[in-house]
Design a binder for these strands. Sequence first.
RNA 1: AGGCUCGUAGCUCAACUGGUAGAGCAGCGGCCUCUUAAGCCGCGAGUUGAGGGUUCGAGUCCCUCCGGGCCUACCA
Length: 505
Amino acid sequence: MSRSEQERIRRDARQSLEEMGVEPYPHKWDVTAHAADILDEFDDERRDPDEGERMNVSIAGRIRSLRVMGGSAFMDVQDESGTVQAYVRKGDLPEGVYDKLVGQHLDIGDLVGVRGHVFRTNMGEVTVRASDTFKLLSKALRPLPTPKEKEGETFNEVTDKELRYRQRYVDLIVNPDVREVFRRRAQLLSEMRDFLNERDFLEVETPALQPVYGGATARPFTTHHNALDMKLYLRIADELYLKRLLVGGLEGVYEIAKDFRNEGLSRFHNPEFTMMELYVAYKDYRWMMELTEKLFARLATKLHGGTTITFDGEDIALAPPFRRLPLFEAIEEHTGRDCYGMNEGELRDVARELNLEIDEAMGKGKLIDEIFSETVEPNLTQPTFITDYPVELSPLAKKHPDKEGLVERFELIVAGNELCNAFSELNDPDDQRARFEEQARLRAEGDGEAAPIDEDYLRALEYGMPPAAGLGIGIDRLAMLMTDQRSIRDVILFPLLRPESDAPE
RNA sequence: AGGCUCGUAGCUCAACUGGUAGAGCAGCGGCCUCUUAAGCCGCGAGUUGAGGGUUCGAGUCCCUCCGGGCCUACCA
């Protein structure tokens, strides 16, 4: 562990302050105003804080820049709402306070409290003058990066992705836009809950630790419970538990929760991610499409003031209705080939002609999925419901009454990215058992993602589950769309990274 | 997992074809009671991600490893 010169100097400064009786980490500070409120109050150029009754405030925040001029100093103080300039004058403070603190041992990055009145400088900037008190609230021992700004241009901006993800606390301090992304993500979740609660859906919580996992095609994380000496899995989906609740008589339930999938990382995948799952009794997937459209339109309107949003430089129109396009029509539209009804060999030939990477282990379902995700998905910029998937890909979905070999299912694709997955839920316990057994067969053949049989879930279905529709929305990907971020790591506060080789301290 | 690419001071970046590691900000000392990328004078700051190799000489070339990014793969 070696400290940089600047760290040693700051530790020395801390010690000097303590020796002079200045507490580097005091216990509290009364905050009466935030930067944005103060600036709002006097945003009118003509309104002068010095006129009439003075506005007295007490603010707290982090020093982002410091300009000391002998007996007085200006600093930019950043709180959660934004940044306001503060002004400290030697003559305003009790004897010695200025010299001990501001003049000598105050650094960029320190947290301070400023109490006094608001005024406008000769240059016109609304400023809090420490006419009453100036106090150190927390001494920073590490130097903060010091990006600067002039006329809208930023200098020395912190751009290192590794630093930004590993030390998100620094990122949040020096890149204020990041706060806006996560505020918007929070607003998205809040609006989604409002939307669902208004419709009388019940928010529930189901186990993240599961003795049998299911509800998706993915490899799970495993863990162990000591007292029960039992192997447990981290959930890969909420689905099977939520549908048990439909059996139990709840007619509309949803859960917003973390799922965990033991898979690779990419711009679109983090091993733990947030999913909203929703199940409604007596509805089918067509009804669910309409609900999904309404939800997306509502979110866009609340977050962006209208149903058209911008993502990666393109306008995305989220006004209902969204285009509905059956999977096989989509493939035909983009490849000129009608794959519906093809057997495995024919599908393999098509995939070869399209120069797709396939292997012998891929069955019908996977081949179709491969063809679709390579040729169609990236080209779907505007929201599109892709409907009616092969039964092989959908072991929990109800068969389509008219289309042989297909199920009533849709995925919503926006900006080339899959955001939603939904279907009419399979509630025939015997059909469900047959689908599980097919999965078990694939498992036996070495498909590590095929689902295990969940006997308790089958037992629940045997008591009778109402016809129902279910929907899953990848919240992180939706947050990407709504905040115009192209990497999932930019909408997850602490994305998974490899451990640092030389961890601090 | 594979390909490409990056890693230099606290931060942002330079350093030709292999020839003494530099700048701005930040920091330290001094001046300065309306500054705002504050200013002026002076100063310090580096195991060039780690290890090995080639060479008279390596930030630069080669190999291995570590970490990041992008792409591919994996991933409904």
